[in-house]
Design a binder for these strands. Structure first.
Lengths: 193, 193
DNA sequence: TCATTTGTACCGTTCGGTCTGTTTGAGTAC
DNA sequence: GTACTCAAACAGACCGAACGGTACAAATGA
């Protein structure tokens, strides 16, 4: 059968839409208009708006995994520098993203306490990222930039959770300076515990 | 004039409602039903739903300031212990709050990037809390539990932002253990930078 | 008395989703 | 190559409910 609307492209557009508008503030009509679909096409491709969001969260999570893997790949740099640099870059991107933060964090905050499926999906996306970051934390421990005495998993949790926190803060103030300072301080603090 | 509905009580109920449901997912009808008001009474007391939220955010912020001030007041304990203990308690409360997180954080995340007034109100609530916490951070620096070489304001930012981050994480997983571990690790990390 | 507060019907719009008829094109038979 | 089949894909009118908010009359009480 001929498929007029590429599901992947629609999901990519959906990511942007949920990212900018949130979940409850975005209607299926808007999704259809933005993707050039009709309701018939949309509901033929996706079971429901909720189900569409789940697909978007998963796709966004995978995109992020690839992005982080790439950001952390440079073999010539110290692990700790790569980690800090990556987070600083993501925070520096916020003004151009209109301080929309991170889709995973946004959905976690808006509806994960009310919708278990979304909770699971966002938690999975978060955990997947930790799996990408943790090896770099272990490397930083071996390189003496993070105390080897602490559990690498917990450090990774701390780092990425802090990122979510300062990201939300940047959103409200529409200013990323303090967030970058806080994130930088965190990474420095991890050296000797 | 006789006022049937105490504005303060209505705002208190509103805090709960926005806290549990978010902003876009909560209708004025539900607010009226939950507070026992009619629409006439509601719109006589508040300019709009948005305006009502602003009042709720401000009241919630003040409540939080009082709560934190009290939590940090014990003169016999070391400042660092009071700080950590306070955050652990707030995280331990999450299961009984159905992992609804923190209203300020929730509203920051859901709509502050789209609604400037809410952005300002949540940012103000956040800053007010920092003003309560920072003196305790300074005290901890004097007591040798936080490195005196770093800016106390930035440390305070970091601590409370991290709290927001781990709170969101706890929401999605409906589990506060990792959040408590991460928060504890952060406070320990601040000792020697 | 009269401004304020309240009750409620009502407004136009949007919500998520359904229904039904039409179009599409790969597969099959010849 | 052509004709036919048929399930999938699509268009869009339509559904009842809920949305934020208004209008206006009735009730209230200083």
């Amino acid at each position: 059968m001929n498929i007029k609307h590429d599901k992947e492209k629609v999901i990519k557009k959906g990511i942007d839409l949920f990212w900018c508008n949130g979940y409850s503030n975005l209607g299926v009509d808007k999704i259809c208009k933005a993707t050039g679909m009709t309701k018939g096409a949309f509901y033929n491709a996706f079971k429901s708006k909720e189900n569409f969001l789940l697909s978007c969260i998963e796709a966004y999570g995978n995109m992020n995994m690839n992005y982080l893997t790439e950001q952390l790949s440079d073999q010539n740099k110290r692990a700790i520098d790569k980690i800090l640099n990556m987070y600083v870059i993501m925070l520096e991107n916020q003004p151009s993203l209109n301080f929309t933060g991170c889709l995973t964090n946004n959905m976690m905050s808006e509806i994960s306490s009310v919708n278990e499926l979304v909770g699971n999906a966002t938690a999975r996306a978060f955990d997947n990222l930790l799996d990408v970051i943790e090896p770099m934390v272990i490397k930083a421990q071996l390189e003496g930039d993070i105390s080897p005495s602490v559990d690498s998993k917990t450090v990774t949790e701390l780092i990425h959770s802090t990122f979510f926190g300062v990201l939300t803060r940047a959103k409200a103030t529409r200013d990323n300076k303090k967030s970058i300072s806080a994130m930088t301080l965190l990474i420095k603090s991890l050296k000797t515990i």
